[in-house]
């Protein structure tokens, strides 16, 4: 039983990176494919499409920071339950936010490809999704300090 609880603690520590990486991979893939498609249809402005398609990569970076913070607390019988809860839920939040941010970025690329003047506005939904990922990131760090 003790080993299982410790294992769950480690799952919680690594979940933000693993799930964040899955989300970022999917999100960047979706946005990147949209950018590639847009480049077939326009004659200029390729750089902004490629640049904006990297937006969903931030979630895995947040995951790495959370992992180092949580692992610094030490995985013991007393901390494992807290690490598992915070780490796993933060990982899920980061994963979904990256996936849906990728779709928001794809929509932004599609809209700004047809109407370049709306690029700034069309990126707003993706930026709002980023905000939710930041909430999960910041409060995971804050709450993590209460585990020990």
């Amino acid at each position: 039983m003790e080993q299982l609880i410790i294992a769950l603690g480690w799952v919680g520590v690594f979940a933000p990176v693993a799930l964040g990486a899955v989300g970022s991979a999917i999100g960047c893939s979706v946005a990147g494919q949209a950018a590639c498609g847009a480049m077939l249809d326009v004659e200029s402005g390729y750089g902004k499409f490629v640049g904006v398609s990297a937006m969903p990569s931030s979630q895995v970076i947040y995951g790495i920071v959370i992992m180092f913070t949580l692992s610094g607390l030490g995985v013991t019988m007393t901390t494992s339950a807290g690490l598992f809860g915070i780490g796993l839920l933060t990982g899920i939040a980061l994963m979904y936010s990256a996936i849906y941010q990728g779709q928001a970025v794809a929509a932004c690329i599609n809209a700004s490809k047809n109407k370049p003047e709306v690029f700034g506005l069309s990126i707003a939904p993706a930026a709002i999704v980023e905000g939710f990922a930041v909430f999960a990131f910041v409060f995971a760090l804050v709450l993590g300090q209460a585990i020990v």
Partner: peptide, 12 residues
């Protein structure tokens, strides 16, 4: 997800 490439490559 590769439909993204095709659909964004098509003009409006």
């Amino acid at each position: 997800n590769a439909y993204y490439t095709l659909l964004t490559s098509l003009p409006h």
